[in-house]
């Protein structure tokens, strides 16, 4: 699969002696993925988005967007769209006027832009407010207007910086559904502190900290869904030796009533689970729960805290 976005050793410092926001940042996002862009405050997420959007110029390194070197507005017209984190929409226009204008600037004809704006505003459930002045809308509604502007038309790559910030739970859920519907049709890169949300939505994760990429890959790889399992077991002596003999390719450890299993490169958690279950049954130990991998949040806390 080709990549929608590639960063190679990109650095950006604010001011001559200021903070180094990006420090040789390298990562990639495959085309068609819904990518979670994760990092603590000040990790460089918004700076990365700003570099991709052409708002900031990197000091060094290279990056390619949809096969184009660097940010080139005319080559990427309508193909790249961004929801900036804290950009104001202005108060004078209506949502319909603003989204139509931005869609036209994105390369659509007048009629296409009007249709795209109407569809996008329907998508974020703002149909009944589309002709009200933006200045009269609530914070959540303004946020939805901004999301509509990012989704209007036929963008191939959409960057969303904290898309659900300021939305109530119902609106946030509705937006997650909209984003999930885009799976396979366009590449979405979503920056958010809500890691549960990202884990449910995304299939690719890039973790950044101090301007560097600390981990990237599919959600399954990053959280260890394909390589780690935790068995929560009932009372009784845990037969660690018997389990290790039954599945010699995997590593096991015990924490309280939990059996932690780590598969090697050639390991297969599906095959091992049958053998482990058989050993446990033979020793009369109940299986209360089996979890694959660990949550994205726990992975992130472990990695970022290192």
């Amino acid at each position: 699969m080709s990549d929608a976005l590639v960063f190679e050793q990109v650095s950006k410092r604010y001011g001559r002696r200021g903070v180094k926001a990006l420090d040789d940042l390298s990562f990639r996002v495959p085309k068609g993925a819904i990518c979670g862009f994760v990092g603590p405050n000040g990790a460089g997420k918004t700076t990365t988005f700003s570099v991709v959007s052409g708002y900031l110029r990197p000091d060094s390194g290279r990056f390619a967007i949809l096969g184009h070197e660097g940010f080139e507005p005319f080559a990427l017209k309508g193909r790249l769209q961004v929801l900036p984190q804290d950009a104001d929409l202005g108060n004078q226009h209506t949502p319909r006027e603003l989204v139509t204008h931005l869609a036209q600037l994105g390369g659509l004809s007048g009629a296409e832009a009007r249709r795209a704006a109407s569809d996008a505003l329907d998508m974020v459930r703002l149909t009944d407010r589309r002709d009200k002045r933006i200045g009269t809308l609530s914070h959540g509604m303004r946020r939805r207007v901004a999301v509509a502007s990012a989704l209007a038309g036929r963008p191939e790559l959409v960057l969303l910086d904290e898309p659900t910030a300021g939305l109530d739970p119902v609106q946030a859920q509705s937006l997650r559904e909209v984003l999930a519907d885009a799976r396979g049709q366009r590449t979405l890169i979503i920056s958010s502190h809500n890691l549960d949300e990202l884990e449910r939505l995304c299939d690719w994760v890039v973790m950044v900290d101090h301007g560097r990429c600390i981990r990237q890959g599919t959600v399954a790889e990053v959280t260890g869904r394909s390589s780690r399992a935790v068995w929560r077991l009932g009372p009784g002596d845990l037969p660690l030796d018997a389990i290790t003999s039954a599945v010699p390719a995997h590593r096991f450890s015990i924490e309280g009533r939990e059996l932690h299993e780590t598969a090697g490169p050639e390991g297969d958690l599906d095959a091992s689970s049958l053998r482990i279950a058989r050993v446990l049954a033979e020793h009369g130990i109940a299986i209360r729960e089996v979890r694959r991998g660990q949550s994205l949040e726990r992975t992130f806390i472990e990695d970022a805290g290192r």
Binding site: S53, P73, L80, Q81, A87, D88, L102, L105, S149
Partner: peptide, 16 residues
């Protein structure tokens, strides 16, 4: 004024 509120970013992304 649009630099101060960053509203300029919406148009700056889509044109030169």
């Amino acid at each position: 004024i649009d630099m101060s509120t960053r509203a300029l970013r919406f148009e700056a992304l889509r044109t030169g």
